[in-house]
Design a protein around this nucleic acid. Structure first.
Length: 370
DNA sequence: GATTCGTGGTC
DNA sequence: TGACCAAGAAT
């Protein structure tokens, strides 16, 4: 399909895609409801997150927070635990902020129009279009990663899909193809096509309902689209953390600030190795800086690797026994002493979770009761 | 407009 | 097995 497509091409495309979608769409939990709140929650969870990953989180979340009011009155610790492992935790903060705001100002209802939705915390162009079209029949086109990839191939479009300046460009194309009669279904159809057929690697062009209009396929070019701007190399940091254990085998955990990375998560104190500092030295220094405690003879129990969005780490975890006397030097920071058996009840970053098996083994070897 | 925000699956 | 990348938003 060349741009701009003719009225005839647009019409045929819409009809064919919609029919394919109605016949083959996946039975996903959020497709079984028309509750705007449920649609909203699902769209927030699906942001940069795979469907298969989201499903169990979504089911549990809707069980625990079935409506706007229950979310608005949620306990922060329990709310964070429900999101643990999903990533991008700012979206959870925005979810609750918006729930509180709407409870106060709009009878705990989501607005139905794109513009009003767009102004709410955590709702950008994509979610505003998705919620308004799926839950309220609004006529705004969604542009997500799937849609950009499909459009790039349909039109052999050279606009890089991973830079923000391309967004308006793809939005114009998506708006042109959107069926105004069934915008919610049409939006989901284009995304479903990208997720199930027009996949990043090895797209299933044989089973594609709209292959007749795909310029990339006609020119044997699908592997060259979408065009993507190369991304920068991300830095690597060695990190050391401490599991500080008292005489009763309780563990010291500290709480991260509500701003920045991993807001509100519990963690084992520690931080980056500076210069050519050894892991053990960094562990001792970081623990002292963060807690005021002077630890002795930290014992390394494991090393794990973890990749964040814009840096990678190799984290070494050290066990440190601490005396009653030294414990009095603990600074006034938000912390808890908990039995290792209770680690699962609190929210920890994935990098800490990766260390838990080694930690359990250590406690078992030392005959500590959970 | 470029960066900052997680994580796990995939190949 | 390391690089890629997924139903993006905020700053």
């Amino acid at each position: 399909m060349h741009f701009p497509p003719s009225e005839n091409e647009i019409s045929t495309f819409r009809t064919t895609l919609l029919q394919w979608y109605q016949n083959t769409k996946r039975d996903l939990p959020w497709r079984r409801t028309r509750d705007p709140y449920a649609i909203w929650v699902s769209e927030v969870m699906l942001q940069q997150t795979r469907v298969d990953t989201v499903i169990p989180y979504y089911e549990a979340f809707m069980e625990k927070y079935p409506d706007m009011a229950s979310l608005a009155r949620s306990e922060p610790e329990a709310l964070l635990k429900s999101w643990e492992g999903l990533g991008y935790y700012k979206r959870l903060q925005n979810l609750k902020k918006t729930a509180l705001f709407l409870t106060e100002t709009n009878d705990a209802r989501l607005p139905s129009d794109f513009q009003s939705l767009r102004e709410l915390p955590g709702i950008g162009d994509y979610i505003a279009a998705a919620v308004s079209s799926i839950a309220f029949h609004g006529k705004e086109a969604v542009v997500d990663g799937n849609v950009k990839r499909v459009l790039a191939r349909l039109f052999t479009d050279p606009a890089p899909v991973n830079i923000s300046s391309s967004h308006r460009h793809f939005l114009r194309h998506a708006s042109l193809l959107l069926d105004p009669e069934q915008p919610g279904e049409a939006n989901q159809a284009l995304m479903e096509l990208g997720a199930m057929v027009c996949t990043p690697a090895r797209p299933s062009c044989d089973g594609c309902p709209v292959s007749f209009s795909c310029e990339a396929l006609h020119t044997d070019n699908t592997r060259n689209y979408p065009v993507r701007q190369p991304k920068k190399i991300i830095p690597f940091y060695p990190v050391a953390c401490a599991v500080i254990v008292n005489e009763r085998f309780d563990i010291l955990i500290t709480k991260r600030p509500e701003t920045g990375m991993l807001p509100g998560f519990w963690e084992f104190p520690g931080g980056r190795c500076e210069g050519k500092e050894s892991g053990m030295d960094a562990c001792i220094r970081e623990v002292f800086e963060e807690t005021g405690l002077k630890i002795e003879k930290p014992e390394k129990i494991c090393t794990i690797r973890h990749a964040y969005t814009h840096f990678r780490i190799e984290m070494s975890l050290f066990i440190c026994r601490i005396t009653e006397k030294e414990r009095q030097n603990l600074k006034p920071i938000e912390h808890r002493w908990i039995p290792h058996g209770e680690l699962d009840t609190l929210a920890f970053p994935a990098a800490n979770r990766k260390c838990m098996p080694a930690l359990s083994a250590w406690f078992q070897a030392h005959n500590a009761s959970p």
